[in-house]
Simulated assay, not measured.
Amino acid sequence: MPKDSIGHLLPGTVSATRFVPAHIPRPEYVGRKAPAPFTGSDVYSPARIEQIRASGQIAARAIEAVGQAIRPGITTEELDQIGHDYMVAHDAYPSTLGYRGYPKSLCSSVNEVICHGIPDTTVLDEGDIVNIDITAFKNGVHGDTNVTFIVGEASEAVTLLVERTKEAMMRGIKAVAPGRQVNVIGRAIESYAKRFNYGVVRDYTGHGVGEAFHSGLIIPHYDSAPRYDTVMEVGMVFTIEPMLTLGGQESDIWADDWTVTTKDKSVTAQFEHTLVVTERGAEILTLP
């Protein structure tokens, strides 16, 4: 993802697949075109939740390690190496590596890239933003999280977008409670985002996570009532990961079938946590 003459991203060069030691267990989908259909439950036992927390903590700390390296002049390929090395050093498998053919150990989504940006020879510049999305697999479960970082200093509009996208995620998390339908989460997020005339991406959502990378449970980030009416239960595990833009909500996808950008090329930010529904609300499982 180098840039064209007006600063929009272009595809860069993707390096070879990284090595994962043989002693680290792989998710069942590695080496296959797609994961097997998930037939389990999104509600987990306390013991299994602790294992998801352990995976989530590795993912969160890997993002911390990547974040410490972000600066003008570094490539997203180099950031992928840092995240990969951290997970492997902690006996976790990078969940994205080999998922439906995805070639890297994290997603690095720069500026107008909404999600699923592939690390490559893109050089980060002063004022860019980059979303780092990492999922770690260990003990048979995944923990999924992402953070948007500012490279150096950005404009006030972009800086506020990043801050407010994180706040939107937290408002969605605060809306979680057993007995409520999942559509209350998107209602809380969109009502906040509309105060600033931000676009709220609809094509990509939160999801059930744990024994499956994506279980089939959908958590929309917009006001979808009554379309998504799954009732939250104690022990249910899923992600909340709003994607807000400085422009519209429509998206395009590149020829690589992964990189998703805003159609109007407006800047976009995202934050994500994996959480579990508790009797009092929600507990975040992806804290470092």
Rank of each mutant, 00 (worst) to 15 (best):
E272G: 15
A282S: 11
L9I: 07
S108D: 08
A168C: 07
T39F: 12
V123L: 07
I218T: 15
K138N: 04
V130R: 00
L9H: 14
T13E: 12
S109T: 07
E250M: 09
H142P: 07
G12Y: 15
Y102S: 15
R53W: 01
E233D: 13
D223L: 11
T165S: 14
Y198I: 04
H23R: 09
S155L: 05
P25C: 10
R171I: 09
Y228S: 05
S5Y: 12
I118S: 06
G117V: 00
V151M: 05
L275A: 04
V123D: 02
D264K: 03
E50V: 03
K3D: 06
F196I: 06
I52D: 06
T96M: 12
S45R: 10
K194T: 13
P46T: 10
E28N: 14
I52C: 13
K33Y: 11
M87R: 02
P220G: 14
T96F: 14
N197H: 13
I219K: 15
Y198M: 06
M243W: 00
D256R: 14
K33S: 14
A47Q: 14
I24H: 05
R71A: 09
V237A: 10
A168M: 09
T13I: 12
N146G: 14
I6V: 13
D42G: 13
V30F: 12
P46L: 05
S266P: 10
R53L: 13
E153F: 01
D120V: 09
D4N: 14
R280H: 11
R61G: 09
P242F: 03
I63E: 00
G101I: 04
R53Y: 08
M232G: 05
G172S: 09
V66K: 03
G143K: 00
I132M: 08
G216S: 08
T39A: 10
Q249I: 10
Q68V: 00
D252K: 13
Q51I: 01
I74W: 08
E190W: 02
L97P: 00
T122R: 13
V158F: 01
T76R: 03
T245M: 01
S108T: 15
G248T: 10
H207F: 08
N131F: 00
G172E: 06
D252R: 12
K138A: 04
P21N: 08
A225N: 05
I58F: 08
M243C: 11
T286G: 02
I74R: 06
E283Q: 15
Y99K: 00
I185R: 07
V200M: 02
V66W: 15
L217V: 08
A269S: 15
A136G: 02
S108P: 01
A212Y: 05
C115W: 00
V260Q: 04
I58T: 13
T75Y: 04
C115S: 13
P226V: 11
V113I: 15
I185D: 04
G216C: 09
V123R: 08
S15L: 10
D252F: 11
Y192G: 04
D144L: 05
S108Y: 09
H84F: 15
V141E: 03
G127W: 01
R18Q: 05
V260L: 15
L287Q: 13
D120Q: 08
